[in-house]
Design a protein around this nucleic acid. Sequence first.
DNA 1: TTACTAATAGCGTTTACTTCA
DNA 2: CATGAAGTAAACGCTATTAGT
Length: 201
Amino acid sequence: MAILPENSSNLDLSISVPGFSSSPPSDEGSGRGREQLKLDMNRLPSSEEDEEFSHGGSAPPRKKLRLTREQSRLLEDSFRQNHTLNPKQKEALAKHLMLRPRQIEVWFQNRRARSKLKQTEMECEYLKRWFGSLTEQNHRLHREVEELRTMKVGPPTVTSTASLTMCPRCERVTTATSPYVVDGGGGVLAKKTLPTQEREH
DNA sequence: TTACTAATAGCGTTTACTTCA
DNA sequence: CATGAAGTAAACGCTATTAGT
């Protein structure tokens, strides 16, 4: 579906809803909205904007608007440019898509929420992998420490294939394979930087 | 039944405006 | 009259939840 001019009066955006009147309530006093009169779903009154259904009877069952592909595409495009809209942008977009500004607002709100959820899930996955990697390294280091402990304390003879080096200044043992610093008692003291392979996950 | 998502409710924060000492 | 503090309402965004498809 092509993007239609704002005053297009013949859109396939209208969604017929059995049992729902197509005559919309007034457009929150804004003076516009004539072009939206045919959009049944899009003209569903929201509770804070319209009380017409509140007096005199029960509200009609809530029908859910389905955005068209084109509406979704344009909203996504807009979202890529900016995750929030100022009132003018919101109004313009609403006019363009033949939706109410409130619907644009809600869409952006939900879109931001989805974005954040996705980001959180990705971070969660990353942290899980990092945790797994750290656990594995922790086990390896413990084994390494055990090996070092089983060596008899004596002259600094290095038997391990891992090349151990003694820091001349702080007298801590380090290995070439492990960037972790271990103390004389075998405890892992610190690591200067994060493993790069984990950061790349 | 489940996933997706539009819509709603409620709350917190910010901002503009008003009142008053 | 000018000024700053306090109160208020509106606007906006966020999170949680509901409910239609």
